[in-house]
Each structure stands twice: as C-alpha cells, then as structure tokens.
Design a binder for these strands. Sequence first.
RNA 1: GGGUUUGUAGCUCAGUUGGUUAGAGCGCCUCGUUUACACCGAGGAGGUCAGAGGUUCGACUCCUCUCAAACCCACCA
Length: 872
Amino acid sequence: MDIPKAYEAKNYENEIYARWEKSGYFNPDVLIENGLIKSTAPVFTIVLPPPNVTGQLHLGHAAMLAYEDLMIRYHRLQGYQALWLPGTDHAAIATQTKVEKIIASEGKKKEDLGREKFLEIVRDYVDKSKATIRNQIRKMGSSLDWSREKYTLDKDVSQTVYQVFKKMYDDGLIYRGNRIVNWCPRCQSTLADDEVEYEQQQANLYYIKYGPVVIATTRPETKLGDTGLAFNPNDKRYLHLLGKELKINFGVANIKVKVFADNEVDPEFGTGAIGVTPAHSQIDFAWAEKYKLPIIKVIDEKGKMTEAAGKYAGQDVLVCRENFVADLKQAGLLEKIEPINNNISICYRCHTAIEPLTSRQWFIDVNKKISRLDKSLKELAIEAVQTGLGGKSDKKIEIIPERFNKVYFHWLENLRDWCISRQIWWGHRIPVWYKNKKQKDEEAEIYVGITPPQEAGWVQDEDTLDTWFSSALWTFSTLGWPEGLDFKRFHPTQVLETGYDILFFWVARMIIMTTYVTGQIPFEKVYLHGLVRDRQGQKMSKSLGNGIDPLDMIEKFGADALRLSMIIGVTPGNDLILYEEKIAGYRNFVNKLWNISRYILMNLSELKLTNQYPQAKTLADEWILSEFNNLIFQVTEDLNQYKFSQAIEALYEFVWSKLADWYLEITKIEGNKSEILNYILQKLLILIHPFIPFVSEEIWTQSYNRNKQDKLMLMIQRWPQVIEKKSNPKIKDFLVLQKLIINLRSVKNESGIATKQSLPVDIYSKEFLSLFQQQQKIIENLARVKINWLDKDSMTANNKVITSEYSFVFKVDIKVKDKSKEIDTLNKYINGLEKKLKNKQFLSKAPSEVVTKEKEKLNEAKKKLAQIKKHP
RNA sequence: GGGUUUGUAGCUCAGUUGGUUAGAGCGCCUCGUUUACACCGAGGAGGUCAGAGGUUCGACUCCUCUCAAACCCACCA
C-alpha cells in the first residue's frame, strides 16, 4: 500500500472540498432528496456572520469558521437538517473608504465621477473581492450551503430592508429630527454612538471670564454657540444667578445665556460653572431640551465655523480656536490656561476627531411604545433575553458565556435613539422621497415607500442607511421573510456565533429588529468567541505587522491543524493566543492520526463499514472498548454543552495516549484485532470529523470509500451511540498492568540499561500475581524484561526492590536510585492523612465515603512505605 | 467614575457542584531507529495554584481585601 509516511494536507484538502461541494450535501435539501435524512428531521441553522466585502480572510474569520463548521458538521452527523447560510456584507463606510483610496491613487475624487459612476467602480471592486473571500472561506473546510448565499445588497434582501424601514416609519419608530449627532468630518457622515471611540490626549483647559463668572473649557471656539450657563444646585457660589438671562461680552462677540442648575454638573471641575453649547455637545443638547434653550450651530459639517460665529465664519475649528483665544487675551478675558488630560472622541474607522453637531437626520426611536405590543424596542430586546417572547419562539436567548448578559442589559438600558442615516453613497438609499423640495427643508412633504412614488417630480433622499441597519435583519432577510418557505423552516435560527466585539453593533441590533419585525427571536443561542492575539497578547493588526495570515498557515500546516489551534485550550468569551509553533504542534497530531490509520490499513486485509459491536477477547480489548465507549459519551456530552475544547482534548488524549501508545502496541503482541480496530477507526473518524474534517475524510476515503462515492462520504455518516453506560470493572486491572510496565521501564531507564536489552526481573505480587501471569507477554514485550515469578519466601533484603502503589514488588540485580526522597514525601503524606483521620470534626462532619476513601489511602501509603523500607 | 475578565510548571492553558501526593501540550534534560509515525517512542526534572485574611472537618475551587494585567461602558464641560 502506497500511503505516504507524512500527511501533507495541501495535497488533499482542495480535492476533498471539491468533492464535498460537488455532492451538494452542504444543502440539507439534497440530503432529503437522496434519502439520507428525513424531511421531518430536526433543524439546526446558523447564519454566517457576513464578512465585509472589502476584506481578506483573517484569523478572526478563521476562528469563526472553525467553530461554526464544527457545530454544523456535528449536527449533520447527528442527522439534523443542518443549514449554514453564507453571505457577505457591503460594509458601507469601510468599502466606500477603501475605493476612495484606490481612485485617489489614480488622482480621482468621487465627486468628480458623480454618484452613479462611482458606485459602478465600487460594484466592480466588490465583485472581485467577494470572489476572493468566498474561496478563502472554502479553504477552511467550511460546509456552507453555497446555493443559498446572500449579499446585503441583493435585490430581495434590499427589498426587506426597505419594507422594514417603511413598517417602522408607519409605526412611528423611525422619525426625522434635527438632533445632535456624531459627525466625522473626514468621512463626511454621521456615526452611531457605538461607532465612536475615545482616545486620551493632552489638552488645554482655558479659564475664560464669562460675564459675572469664570468658566473653564477645552473648546473655547464653541463658546460662541453657548446659550446656557449651568452649575450644580448645591453650589452656593452661583445660586444668586439662577434663572437669570445673562449677556456675555467676549469683546469680539456677544452671546445670551440662560442660567440653570443641574445635578450632573460637577462642582469640583474647573470653576463649577459651565457654558452650555447645545449644538456641539451631547449632554448640552440634552440640557437644551430639558431647559428649553435655543440651539446655535457654530460649526458646520466641513469642520468650519458658520455664519453664527461672526467674524470667525469660514475658519477651520482649530484656526478659530487660536484666533478667538488671542482675541480673548487681548480683551483681558482669558484668566489662565491649564494643561489637562482629556478624552477626545474619534471615528472608529478613520480615527479622525469627531465633531458633535446638530443635524437633520433619520433616527430610530428606541423608547417609544409600539402600539400593538405596548412595548418599546428596548423593552422587547431585554425581554427576549430575560424571559423570552412567548408564542412561537418561547425560548429565551441564551448568551454563552453567560456573563455577557449583564453587559447586554446594561447597554440596552442606556441606549439612546439610533441615528441611521449616513451621508455616504455606498449602501441602501433611504426609501424616502421629498416633493419638489430639497431634503434639508424641514417642511418638505414626505413619501416613504418600497418603490418610488408614481408621480414625477419627487426627489429621493440623498443619504444611505447605516450598514448595521441591514445587518440587523440578517437572520430573516436571508431566509425570504415573510412568506418564504425557508423562513418558515429555518427561523428562528439555533446559534449565532460571533466575536464579543460586535455584541452591540450587531447581536443586540439583530435582537432589537428581529423581535420587532417578526415577533420571533433571531436565534436561540449566542456563542461569543474572543479575539485572536499574538504571542505577546497583542491584538493582531496590519499596522502592528504582527498578523498571521491564515492562508499561509493552511498552506504550511493544513486547515485541520489551524482549526485545532483555535479550538483547543480556548473557551468562549476569552481571547486566544496564537503562534506558528502551536499550529505546528497540532499538525503533528493530525499526522499521528494519519499514521494510526496507516498502521491499521497496513495490517488489516479488509475494512468494512459495520455497526456490529466487536467482541473483546483479551483484557486489553476490554479496556480499549470501554475507553472508547466513554469517549463517545464524553465527546457527545461536551459538544451538546458547547464545550468544544474539552471534547477535542478527550479525543486527543484517547487517540494519542491510549490508542496509539498502548493499544496499537499491544496489537503487535496479541495480533488478530481486525474486528476491534475496524470498529474503532470507523467510529473514531466520525467523532473527530467536526474538528478536523479534511484528514478524517481522506482517511475515510482510503479505508471505507475507495471508490469515492458521494453517499459513502464521512461527512454524512451517523454519529456513534454509546453502547453501555456502566464502566467495566476489569478496567482497573489494565491500569495496574500499565503501572507495572511504567515502573519497570522507569527502573531500566534510570539505571541506564538500554531499552532493547531484555532485563531479567523477579516479580512478586500478593494481589495481582495471576493478573500479571496472564499478561506476561505484554509485560515482557512492552517493558522489555524477562520475568521470573517469585513467591513471598524467596524475597530477600539483599535485592533491590521497587514497589508500586498497587503493592507489587519486583527485584532486579541493578543499582536503583536513592529512595530517601520518596520516603520523605510518603511520610509527609501519611502524617497528613493520620492527622486528618484523628480529627473528630472530620470524622463526624465529612461524608462517610470520604472518610473510608481517606482510610484506604492511608493503608495503601503505609503498605508502600513498609515495602520501600524493607528493601531500601 | 461604573462594570467584566484574567493571574496555576519557562510558554500556552485544563482543573466539573470544595474531598488526590494539583494535570496536559509545547519547551528542557537523558536514552532510543522495536513490523504506523523522528510531524516518533521511553524515562525524567520543573509549581508555597499572585498576596493576605475569612468561612469550613477540609479551599486551586466559596467570601472579603490587596497587588498586577487586559478589556468594556460612561465621560471631564
């Protein structure tokens, strides 16, 4: 048989994926059509978190694909209708920015091209990018149903987007308002609150004479737009001013401010008095609503001062700041400047400083009660996780790990209205038309619809929707909501698996929108994975240059090894540290499995698919079958509880430490194991397939599917059943046997005796003599010794004797290392146990089984000690 | 300011509801090519479980505090 010694993943993986894909079996409908599962089989659905169309596959994606494919393949093997639905996201700002950069390198600007021409270029770019990412996803072995692939800008998906917009508008949940928003002057667009990041910065705190008081501010130029003066109600310094309207003279400009007191003012900061600028600060805007202050916008969308800023109109914000401060100084109004550590808000995409300003935008009202439900969006989303919605999807959403519940609730409770309009071109254009007027006109007559109004002359809103608006609909917009058969079959989905970093951006918003639109939860479980970090624990990123390219790793070690490196030792919600040696280590495991099957194939004339439980003929057989049975139980249990790491660790341990290191070695001694090896290999490949699909399928092909028939492929086999629940009492005998062999090897090794030299030993055991005699061949072969059985009388103190915890004794005519250290630790152990057993509290309060156990331990230890002392 | 997580062998991590002399992989040391595998085998060294208290008959495990690291939310006008 010409099976290579080493498994070279890259020689097999592409061909295997092609076979899987060609079979059509990623699509549950095809399995039904072929009679491989019943149409009544339970459903298990995951929608793939759609990667951005801009991107290359990175390790975050790779991890996501590994976990999701694992779940899908497990359920497919369990006989479910397993649907994993692929798709991509148009990623509005990210994509537009990327293409802008590309055309900029050719010296072009999007404004010169015009909207339509620019969008054409973006579409071309997206087409290419999509093809790349699709193939990269395939490289990981992802068993996605490509026939159902979706894209956020697909016609039907877009249709759903517009439909939902209209529904929300009709329900009064979407409104247009002139409110404060986060404005990115570079992107020239609004951002949602959670798209804003913060960065610490050294800034100046300017103390400015402000009529009768002094205020402190880091942004003097905004003071031109002040309409209020605030202090804390307990601050007696300013109480006399409460309710007054003050004229403030800045020398170069005059403003009018209303004085009010609010608990949110910190009297300790600065002078305790604040100039309030409703148009350019989130909290000031809220105060303006509360205390009915006028709103004066002094900074525009380009980051320049407006007409309202008087002589500074048209200046850049920073230029104005400089000029204004100079003017204040001149007028003797600048008291002092203090350095201060300040958090400034920046755009999460381009890190430009955010300019909060008022603007006429579209918002989703998260607090308004939906009349037919008498609940707000916020309440609905909380309910979905807290108690469940009742009705068809009465399950409540379970977040794994659970601790993220708290984070989720906290976020929702503090959620403000969500600004959904973006001033960029790439995305879903807002389905709103204005009659003969420009959208800036507040009084414009509005038409909201899925299609444009019939009459001529209506002008569509220039803006597009926040990319997360369409992503929020993803579980049902991809399944043909509301009438599609797939929607009825596969929604709610079972699991959403994604990174915890988009819990708010995406997961929470899906819950908000889906519960509102469909009355169902979008998914039953949320499995959150962590971030992939480098060896130093740093986040992998392009700018740091510490990123590992998953495609390189696949090329070098194979997709299976990469998958293992991201599953083993990883728990949900926790970050994972990845580096090349780790992946190489798991490549070795894959190779080990390969060689195990190689050995089996070389020794077995024939491999047969069978469900016949094999007959155990020897102690070793009993042991391995019992261990394997436990393994089936363990892996199934762990996977049902989403403990992926524990499941594969159990498999790893079985394959390497039990099957390869012991049982296969014993087959070389006992021979004639085809029935058992056939059984174990067959079922083991099924158990391990969700973790390492490629190598398992390849071994399967060589063992059970040499003609490469679709219907015989591993990916559609049935998950093995646990045969017997009780553990076999004979197993303990095998453990004793192992112990003896390990002890013998240890003696040989430490005495410097060559492994291959067959060492003569005398063995005596009171308890296990017959066991050892029965297993003599195994002992002699595995430990490389020649046994002479002793009876008790022939024991003498003259020979060096080794004891084991199972109270057997063997003596050999060689030097054995000093035992004093072992005696020390044993003595300590015994003392501890004796103390414990003399303790009346322990005897009375501890459960009797524990006490018995401790007594047994003490006896064992004493016996052992006695034997060591007798034969030092 | 509020919150979360983490701290166990040189490194990466397990350790189920408190009941072993605390485990694994990698790395390290010694030996080794025996009918699959050197991407291997055998043996071995290595830990006062961050620290201090407390609860308990008993704590790596539960509670409190301290120290250290990472992250999230709010935000300083």
